[in-house]
């Protein structure tokens, strides 16, 4: 125990006993910070107090000093609780640091290159609700004949979702060289997920592929949200959905594949449920709201459309996202 601190404490107590001024109490309060800095435990504080008083009042009755011994005994567990608390805080700081690193690793893992196309404009945006995302957007393309996108959503958030997601990435990477059709991709990824993921993890995934030849967009869905197709000619929305179980439920699940033809000005909005299940104070938003937003920006670039949806839905919930938020836009037509 540092003797200097003891001396200073005794002087402070003595001064207060003589003046009883608020000023000296304030000095004591400030002094207590030094105790904390020096990690002097509560029982030690009582010990220091006792020694100070023994010097200041040597004639006090013996029983009086014994009462301090009792108090010291009482404080031991408080001291331990404090130390445990401090050690838990340090552990938490370590965890937060690890999370930051994990976030960086994930960001590297998540990197995907947006294909560049002359007759298809692509825009996308993905924002995690917490540090780690359970949404996954991945593009595959040869930049001349086709452009594909996978939009996956791991049910759940945070680290478990992020770990699970990295596996989908490896599944997708395996298919990079092949120009596979959507139902084949889901088939393969489903088997990988089924084999390696815990039973409590489910992943929804939409896979869409645009082919320049014929302007055909073919797609398959593993229990994912229907995507929205905007038809410029009729100024209407059509929901695109295809039958298929969530990934990881059954090893031999089959996925239906469908296709539509895109005309000039048409666009497809693929979203995760962080978008469609935007929650405001009044509850979940109406699907119509998303369509309304999309309509107002239908003539803008694909990226502008994606950004606007995030901006407006974000504002509705004060940018306090409840779930990871991802949106991909495929727009037929020359770029703005």
């Amino acid at each position: 125990m540092p003797k200097e601190v003891e001396k200073q404490y005794k002087a402070l107590v003595n001064r207060y006993i003589n003046t009883k001024s608020e000023n000296d109490l304030y000095a004591g309060q400030k002094f207590s910070r030094r105790f904390i800095e020096k990690e002097i435990s509560p029982e030690e504080v009582i010990g220091i107090h006792k020694s100070a008083l023994m010097e200041l009042f040597p004639d006090a009755p013996e029983d009086f000093w014994h009462s301090f011994d009792f108090l010291i005994e009482m404080m031991i567990h408080y001291g331990l609780a404090l130390q445990e608390h401090q050690s838990l805080i340090r552990k938490q700081e370590e965890l937060e640091l690890e999370m930051k690193i994990a976030e960086k690793v994930q960001n590297t893992l998540l990197k995907t290159r947006v294909p560049t196309f002359s007759d298809l404009d692509i825009g996308f945006l993905t924002v995690p609700a917490k540090q780690m995302s359970g949404d996954y957007i991945y593009f595959l393309s040869d930049d001349s004949n086709y452009a594909s996108v996978a939009v996956a959503d791991v049910i759940g958030k945070g680290i478990p979702a992020a770990l699970c997601m990295s596996m989908i990435k490896f599944g997708m990477d395996n298919m990079q060289k092949q120009n596979s059709s959507p139902h084949v991709v889901l088939d393969v990824v489903n088997r990988i997920v089924e084999e390696s993921v815990d039973d409590s993890m489910f992943i929804s995934m939409f896979y869409g592929k645009y082919e320049v030849d014929g302007s055909v967009f073919s797609y398959a869905s593993a229990g994912h949200e229907p995507v929205l197709l905007y038809k410029a000619a009729s100024n209407t929305f059509i929901e695109l959905d295809a039958k298929g179980l969530l990934l990881g439920v059954q090893p031999n699940a089959t996925y239906e594949e469908r296709s539509v033809v895109l005309d000039e000005g048409d666009f497809i909005a693929m979203m995760t449920d962080g978008v469609t299940e935007t929650r405001t104070e009044d509850g979940f938003i109406d699907d119509e709201i998303i369509k309304e937003i999309l309509t107002t920006v239908k003539d803008e670039s694909a990226q502008k459309i994606a950004d606007t949806v995030y901006q407006q839905l974000g504002e509705m919930q004060n940018f306090h996202l409840h779930d990871d938020f991802s949106i991909v836009i495929f727009k037929k037509g020359y770029k703005n």
Partner: peptide
């Protein structure tokens, strides 16, 4: 000292 006695005893 008293404080260490209390710690050892605890």
């Amino acid at each position: 000292g008293t404080v260490d006695q209390a710690r050892i005893t605890t």
